[in-house]
Amino acid sequence: MGGNIRKFQFCGKDTLQLPAKREAFATLKEWLISIAEEVSLPEKTRKQLLIAADEIFTNIASYGFPSGNGTAGVAVEFDMQKRELVLTFSDAGVPYNPLEAPSPDTSVPLAERKTGGLGIFMVRRLMDSVEYRREDGRNVLVLKKRLD
């Protein structure tokens, strides 16, 4: 009865606060890799998650706090029943909904291509859903990825 409840060490929610600096992605990456190992995330999903986290965190670090230092909160939730991973980014930076960014024209030759919007375009393709809301003066971006 209930013999499987201790199957994973990580089965709930974990959070991390980081300085909103690009180099802090190294810490975020390490943290996500350790969670991926604990929940036995497939290799492909692990890579997709890291790319998505890179894009969102880089956006916050690059544009969220133009006047100085800020922090970004990241929460990971793994719903074992639904086999769904939820990654939530939260920051009190400049109000910004990345989902409103125009998609890049991927048919244009590289040499003529503008680079903006490429990151969020990839996030939308790699994740199953991406939702933005502005809540209590914070940007909240929720990424969901189903396993299997």
Binding site: K47, L50, I51, D54, E55, T58, L110, A111, R113, T115, L118, G119, M122
Partner: peptide, 15 residues
């Protein structure tokens, strides 16, 4: 893996 930051470097090298 390669994120968009890596893609930009590859694009720069291609140019």
């Amino acid at each position: 893996y390669v994120s968009s930051a890596g893609l930009r470097v590859i694009m720069g090298a291609d140019q």
